[in-house]
Amino acid sequence: MRKIENHIPAICSIALLAACSTPQQLAASKEVAQEIQVPPERVICGPMPLPDTDIDELDIPGGSLAERSVHFDFDSYIVGEDGKQVARNHAAYLVKNKRTVLIQGNTDERGGSEYNLALGQKRAEAVRKTMAALGVPEGRMEAVSQGEEQTAAEGHDEQAWSKNRRADIVYKAR
């Protein structure tokens, strides 16, 4: 006797066909079910329910919240169009989910330490203000500067520097 687990794909196909079939197709589905020795109580008619899941949008790889960095041009703290989209995505999530974030402003290695700390703070504040304008309460966001200390990319060229000129949106633990 064949195990029923080996026939789950066939059973699902039968159930799907049975759910939206003519009487002739339904009879054919029942014959197939008998052929593979499926007990009648195991044949499902109608759509199968989806499992009830509580997947947090933050945990979806490649989803709209996967990107958590807003990148900046050299010596700038203006949020560009790409950065505005990142901020919109996270603002919408924050409004719905009542979470809090830390926005960390970062710079590349060029410039003095004091200058980079100030620029990092301006970048974090720019993202915070953008998200506040989109409805996120000020009290649920904190903006800090990391200056040049937290690099995203190693190297001393434009490719590395462009990755380091950013503000990261970091979700605090619940």
Rank of each mutant, 00 (worst) to 15 (best):
M1H: 06
N6H: 13
H7Y: 14
A10W: 03
I11C: 14
I11G: 13
S13K: 15
L17F: 07
A18V: 03
C20L: 10
C20H: 10
P23M: 12
P23V: 13
Q24C: 09
L26I: 12
A27M: 13
A28K: 08
S29M: 15
A33P: 00
E35G: 07
P39N: 11
P39L: 14
P40R: 04
V43N: 05
G46P: 12
P47F: 09
L50T: 15
L50E: 11
T53W: 10
D56P: 01
D59R: 02
I60E: 04
I60T: 03
G63V: 13
S64I: 13
L65A: 10
A66W: 08
A66Q: 07
E67G: 02
R68H: 07
V70G: 00
H71D: 06
F72H: 00
F74K: 15
S76D: 10
Y77Q: 05
I78P: 01
V79P: 00
D82A: 14
K84W: 03
R88L: 12
N89F: 11
H90C: 09
H90T: 11
L94R: 00
L94A: 12
T100P: 06
T100H: 08
L102N: 12
I103D: 02
I103V: 15
I103H: 03
N106T: 08
N106Y: 00
T107I: 08
T107Y: 00
D108C: 07
R110I: 07
G111L: 13
G112Y: 11
G112P: 04
E114Y: 13
Y115M: 15
L117Y: 06
A118R: 06
G120W: 01
Q121R: 14
A124N: 03
A126C: 02
A126D: 04
K129R: 06
T130R: 01
T130A: 14
M131V: 10
L134M: 12
V136D: 05
V136I: 10
P137C: 12
M141S: 02
A143F: 01
S145P: 09
Q146F: 04
G147C: 09
E148P: 01
Q150V: 15
Q150A: 15
E154M: 12
G155N: 10
H156T: 11
Q159W: 02
W161S: 03
R165P: 02
R166A: 08
D168H: 07
I169K: 00
I169F: 05
I169T: 03
V170S: 10
K172W: 01
A173N: 04
